[in-house]
Design a protein around this nucleic acid. Structure first.
Lengths: 259, 259
DNA sequence: CGGCGAATTGACGGACGTCAACTGCTGTGG
DNA sequence: CCACAGCAGTTGACGTCCGTCAATTCGCCG
């Protein structure tokens, strides 16, 4: 429950916190909990009031939305990401359910203290606005991805993005169950299987969670990745120091670490 | 080009600006332009650097995304809304192109001065964060709408939302061409026609841009509107003063005034 | 060993996109 | 004033993509 100083430093290094005054940061973590959750734990249900800002320190988590007994995954989060920031800022009810996919370490910071810190520390308030901007743009990319691309195109782009995020080698490991991936990409598990089958012509080989891209150029020609949709290919950051805030926020899933 | 004081007051009254210090606000509008554009003008192209924060004062505008020669409408904006805020905050390239649908009056505020104002005025920075949060949540609703509902369900919900936004009477006027509506709802114009046809069984009558809802209860049973997707039905604002920031931002289209 | 759930495969149906033809409106120019 | 071109909207036919249902296989864990 008390935080290790290693973890404190990881949090302090987040874009969200690194510009905050030391005093602001201390106040924020003073009333914070670091908690371990097993896989499959629901942290927060859609529609519930939000009392905490969450920070995923270790593990894997998922944000999902529901309607009419149907469910969809809006994002898969990797460490280190914050989530549910927008609801915290507005003190509003959650629009998505948050669930752990793996055993996870999660830092919970009082929402009330976040709102107070923003009013007292302009640097922190700016950082919150920047974080939200990155999340917002991640979602814009998501919507474009969904509305403009077909199912196999979405999968192809996902694979290319994962490839670079896993070091650029020809073979990559899916970070979670295929059913979660299917939901993230906006299709059924059955259709994801077929989408993988479609991509065999483009050099995609599947073996359980392990996927190999034998003909990346052919796959790329199908996927047509675009810097205005796929956040992993950003131009050479002409304005230094920025850009990577947006990148980090968008690193998880096809899309963004959504707040 | 010089702003009328009427317009200045309308801008000042926006949630984004009403908490800003007078001095901050004066600096912001000091270097701002108020400009009139004819219908169909492209204000900003996808991929371009963003130099201004835009405020739609009068008229109607549209944000669209493109990929592989396909185009989709991400939002339709009504006065008074800001747009392209997120790109301004990050000083990043636009992810969407902005186009006027009708003749419009648009206020353009220097992006540089917005970023400076945030650093100097914590109240303004908080307001920016709140605005972005509302926009973000609008987009979350959009994604859920897209991924969880079928085409006629999206249309039905759009109609019910428009109905309340136009005073609650049985008949409403579509604010723009049906082709724009189709694109906003994620379908082709042909399919929008068919979706309207499907809804005749639920008391929906179409006559050009005029739509009448004869059996709102039946339509509602089909649409299953949900407060976690459809921003027009918010609970009774237990915490006063907030909530309507989110509502305003989400009032345009099925979805949000996207920034 | 037995059972459960994830993943795959096939068959089927429905939803949606595409193409084409037709209507009706509007603005233009002879 | 009317003829005509151009575009939005509608309708029909058709094909494809995708979801649903069912059966099967496989791996994991009790």
């Amino acid at each position: 429950m008390p935080m290790r100083s290693v973890d404190i430093e990881r949090v302090r290094a987040l874009p969200l916190f690194q510009c905050a005054a030391q005093r602001t940061f201390d106040n924020l973590i003073a009333g914070a909990f670091l908690q371990k959750f097993p896989a499959g734990t629901t942290l927060l249900m859609e529609g519930d009031p939000v009392d905490f800002l969450y920070v995923l320190i270790e593990g894997l988590a998922e944000l999902q939305g529901t309607w009419n007994d149907k469910e969809t995954t809006l994002a898969v989060l990797r460490p280190v990401s914050t989530f549910i920031l927008a609801a915290v800022v507005l003190d509003a009810d959650a629009l998505m359910t948050a669930r752990t996919i793996e055993r996870s370490d999660i830092l919970m910071i009082s929402g009330e203290s976040v709102r107070r810190a923003m009013k007292e520390d302009a640097g922190f308030a700016v950082a919150v606005a920047e974080e939200l901007s990155g999340c917002y743009r991640g979602l814009v990319r998501t919507v474009k991805n969904q509305k403009l691309r077909g199912a196999s195109e979405r999968l192809a782009n996902y694979l290319l993005a994962e490839q670079v995020s896993q070091g650029g080698g020809p073979t990559l490991i899916l970070p979670h169950e295929k059913r979660v991936l299917a939901s993230l990409l906006g299709m059924t598990p059955e259709n994801l299987s077929r989408a993988f089958a479609n991509l065999t012509d483009y050099g995609v080989t599947v073996n359980g969670p392990q996927v190999t891209l034998l003909r990346p150029i052919a796959l790329d020609r199908l996927a047509k990745p675009d810097r205005l949709i796929d956040s992993h290919l950003q131009p050479s950051a002409a304005r230094v120091g920025m850009a990577d805030r947006e990148c980090r926020a968008s690193a998880a899933g096809t899309i963004g670490a959504l707040n």
